[in-house]
Amino acid sequence: HAATELTPEQAAALKPYDRIVITGRFNAIGDAVSAVSRRADEEGAASFYVVDTSEFGNSGNWRVVADVYKA
Protein backbone atom coordinates (compact mmCIF):
# COMPACT_ATOMS: atom_id res chain seq x y z
CA HIS A 1 0.00 0.00 0.00
CA ALA A 2 1.24 3.46 -0.80
CA ALA A 3 1.94 6.08 1.83
CA THR A 4 -0.79 8.72 1.87
CA GLU A 5 -0.36 12.47 1.71
CA LEU A 6 -1.54 14.36 4.80
CA THR A 7 -3.34 17.69 4.95
CA PRO A 8 -1.57 20.53 6.81
CA GLU A 9 -3.96 20.00 9.73
CA GLN A 10 -3.22 16.28 9.94
CA ALA A 11 0.54 16.87 9.72
CA ALA A 12 0.41 19.49 12.48
CA ALA A 13 -1.20 16.97 14.84
CA LEU A 14 1.46 14.30 14.31
CA LYS A 15 5.18 14.04 14.99
CA PRO A 16 7.28 13.01 11.99
CA TYR A 17 9.91 10.32 12.52
CA ASP A 18 12.05 11.37 9.58
CA ARG A 19 12.49 13.94 6.83
CA ILE A 20 13.28 12.89 3.30
CA VAL A 21 14.61 14.93 0.41
CA ILE A 22 14.27 13.86 -3.18
CA THR A 23 15.53 15.58 -6.28
CA GLY A 24 14.51 14.97 -9.84
CA ARG A 25 12.92 16.26 -12.96
CA PHE A 26 9.15 16.40 -12.47
CA ASN A 27 6.66 17.63 -15.07
CA ALA A 28 4.09 18.53 -12.43
CA ILE A 29 3.77 18.69 -8.66
CA GLY A 30 1.69 15.53 -8.81
CA ASP A 31 4.69 13.67 -10.24
CA ALA A 32 6.85 14.90 -7.37
CA VAL A 33 4.21 13.87 -4.82
CA SER A 34 4.06 10.40 -6.39
CA ALA A 35 7.85 10.09 -6.10
CA VAL A 36 7.71 11.14 -2.44
CA SER A 37 4.93 8.63 -1.81
CA ARG A 38 7.03 5.83 -3.30
CA ARG A 39 10.10 6.79 -1.22
CA ALA A 40 8.02 7.09 1.96
CA ASP A 41 6.51 3.68 1.23
CA GLU A 42 10.00 2.16 0.79
CA GLU A 43 10.93 3.52 4.22
CA GLY A 44 7.86 1.96 5.82
CA ALA A 45 6.02 5.23 6.37
CA ALA A 46 2.24 5.27 6.59
CA SER A 47 1.95 8.88 5.46
CA PHE A 48 3.89 11.96 4.45
CA TYR A 49 3.57 15.71 4.18
CA VAL A 50 5.43 17.80 1.59
CA VAL A 51 7.14 20.59 3.51
CA ASP A 52 8.89 22.39 0.67
CA THR A 53 9.44 22.29 -3.06
CA SER A 54 12.00 24.35 -4.89
CA GLU A 55 13.42 24.42 -8.38
CA PHE A 56 17.15 24.04 -8.95
CA GLY A 57 18.14 26.94 -11.21
CA ASN A 58 16.49 26.75 -14.61
CA SER A 59 17.32 23.11 -15.24
CA GLY A 60 13.84 21.78 -14.52
CA ASN A 61 15.15 19.76 -11.58
CA TRP A 62 13.19 20.00 -8.37
CA ARG A 63 14.11 19.45 -4.73
CA VAL A 64 11.21 18.16 -2.65
CA VAL A 65 11.35 17.96 1.14
CA ALA A 66 8.79 15.87 3.01
CA ASP A 67 8.21 14.75 6.58
CA VAL A 68 7.28 11.09 6.96
CA TYR A 69 5.07 9.53 9.63
CA LYS A 70 4.67 5.99 10.90
CA ALA A 71 0.96 5.60 11.61
Rank of each mutant, 00 (worst) to 15 (best):
residue 21 V to E: 07
residue 13 A to S: 12
residue 60 G to R: 04
residue 1 H to W: 07
residue 2 A to M: 12
residue 15 K to Y: 08
residue 65 V to K: 02
residue 7 T to Y: 04
residue 26 F to V: 01
residue 16 P to S: 05
residue 63 R to N: 06
residue 49 Y to R: 05
residue 45 A to E: 01
residue 36 V to N: 00
residue 41 D to F: 15
residue 38 R to Y: 06
residue 28 A to E: 09
residue 54 S to L: 14
residue 58 N to V: 11
residue 35 A to T: 04
residue 41 D to V: 15
residue 17 Y to P: 05
residue 39 R to E: 04
residue 48 F to E: 02
residue 8 P to D: 09
residue 6 L to P: 03
residue 6 L to Q: 02
residue 62 W to F: 11
residue 40 A to E: 04
residue 71 A to W: 13
residue 6 L to D: 01
residue 56 F to S: 09
residue 9 E to M: 11
residue 59 S to D: 14
residue 61 N to V: 14
residue 45 A to Y: 15
residue 17 Y to L: 03
residue 59 S to A: 11
residue 33 V to W: 08
residue 20 I to Q: 00
residue 7 T to G: 06
residue 71 A to H: 09
residue 13 A to E: 12
residue 34 S to N: 13
residue 40 A to I: 06
residue 40 A to Q: 02
residue 58 N to E: 14
residue 65 V to S: 04
residue 49 Y to C: 08
residue 54 S to M: 14
residue 27 N to P: 10
residue 64 V to K: 00
residue 36 V to F: 00
residue 17 Y to A: 02
residue 47 S to E: 04
residue 46 A to M: 11
residue 57 G to Y: 06
residue 44 G to E: 04
residue 43 E to S: 11
residue 11 A to E: 01
residue 59 S to M: 10
residue 38 R to S: 07
residue 38 R to K: 13
residue 38 R to N: 06
residue 34 S to K: 14
residue 20 I to Y: 03
residue 2 A to R: 14
residue 15 K to I: 14
residue 30 G to A: 14
residue 54 S to R: 12
residue 47 S to P: 02
residue 70 K to N: 10
residue 55 E to F: 14
residue 36 V to C: 07
residue 48 F to R: 01
residue 47 S to G: 11
residue 50 V to T: 01
residue 4 T to D: 06
residue 17 Y to I: 03
residue 63 R to K: 10
residue 49 Y to M: 06
residue 57 G to L: 08
residue 47 S to F: 15
residue 70 K to A: 11
residue 4 T to M: 13
residue 25 R to Y: 13
residue 30 G to C: 12
residue 8 P to I: 10
residue 62 W to G: 03
residue 66 A to D: 01
residue 70 K to M: 12
residue 40 A to D: 02
residue 30 G to K: 13
residue 42 E to P: 01
residue 44 G to C: 09
residue 32 A to I: 14
residue 50 V to D: 01
residue 39 R to F: 09
residue 69 Y to T: 01
residue 32 A to C: 12
residue 30 G to R: 11
residue 71 A to V: 11
residue 15 K to W: 08
residue 49 Y to S: 04
residue 4 T to W: 10
residue 40 A to W: 02
residue 11 A to T: 03
residue 66 A to Q: 00
residue 1 H to N: 08
residue 51 V to D: 01
residue 18 D to Y: 09
residue 18 D to I: 11
residue 28 A to F: 09
residue 41 D to R: 15
residue 38 R to D: 05
residue 36 V to L: 08
residue 48 F to H: 00
residue 61 N to C: 15
residue 42 E to D: 09
residue 31 D to V: 05
residue 5 E to G: 07
residue 45 A to Q: 02
residue 47 S to M: 13
residue 61 N to P: 04
residue 57 G to P: 08
residue 71 A to N: 11
residue 8 P to C: 14
residue 53 T to F: 15
residue 46 A to K: 09
residue 41 D to N: 15
residue 52 D to C: 14
residue 30 G to T: 13
residue 15 K to D: 07
residue 62 W to Y: 09
residue 19 R to F: 04
residue 62 W to C: 07
residue 45 A to M: 10
residue 63 R to F: 08
residue 60 G to I: 04
residue 20 I to N: 00
residue 58 N to L: 11
residue 30 G to F: 10
residue 6 L to C: 05
residue 6 L to E: 01
residue 34 S to L: 14
residue 9 E to T: 09
residue 66 A to K: 00
residue 36 V to E: 01
residue 3 A to P: 15
residue 66 A to T: 01
residue 31 D to T: 05
residue 66 A to V: 13
residue 7 T to L: 07
residue 10 Q to I: 06
residue 28 A to T: 15
residue 14 L to S: 09
residue 35 A to S: 05
residue 8 P to W: 14
residue 46 A to H: 15
residue 22 I to W: 00
residue 33 V to Y: 10
residue 14 L to Q: 12
residue 13 A to M: 13
residue 55 E to N: 11
residue 65 V to D: 01
residue 30 G to D: 13
residue 5 E to A: 10
residue 51 V to I: 11
residue 42 E to K: 10
residue 56 F to A: 08
residue 28 A to K: 12
residue 51 V to Q: 03
residue 68 V to S: 00
residue 59 S to Q: 10
residue 56 F to R: 05
residue 3 A to R: 02
residue 18 D to W: 09
residue 68 V to G: 00
residue 37 S to Q: 15
residue 9 E to L: 10
residue 50 V to L: 09
residue 32 A to G: 03
residue 33 V to M: 13
residue 65 V to H: 02
residue 43 E to K: 11
residue 54 S to K: 13
residue 55 E to M: 10
residue 66 A to L: 07
residue 62 W to H: 04
residue 36 V to H: 00
residue 42 E to S: 09
residue 54 S to Y: 15
residue 7 T to P: 04
residue 51 V to C: 05
residue 70 K to L: 12
residue 47 S to V: 04
residue 36 V to P: 05
residue 36 V to T: 04
residue 71 A to E: 14
residue 19 R to M: 04
residue 29 I to Y: 14
residue 34 S to E: 14
residue 43 E to G: 07
residue 42 E to L: 12
residue 4 T to Q: 12
residue 26 F to E: 00
residue 3 A to W: 04
residue 55 E to D: 08
residue 43 E to M: 15
residue 45 A to I: 05
residue 50 V to G: 00
residue 35 A to E: 10
residue 65 V to L: 05
residue 27 N to A: 13
residue 13 A to C: 15
residue 19 R to K: 03
residue 21 V to M: 07
residue 44 G to H: 06
residue 55 E to I: 13
residue 53 T to Y: 15
residue 30 G to N: 10
residue 31 D to S: 06
residue 3 A to T: 06
residue 42 E to F: 10
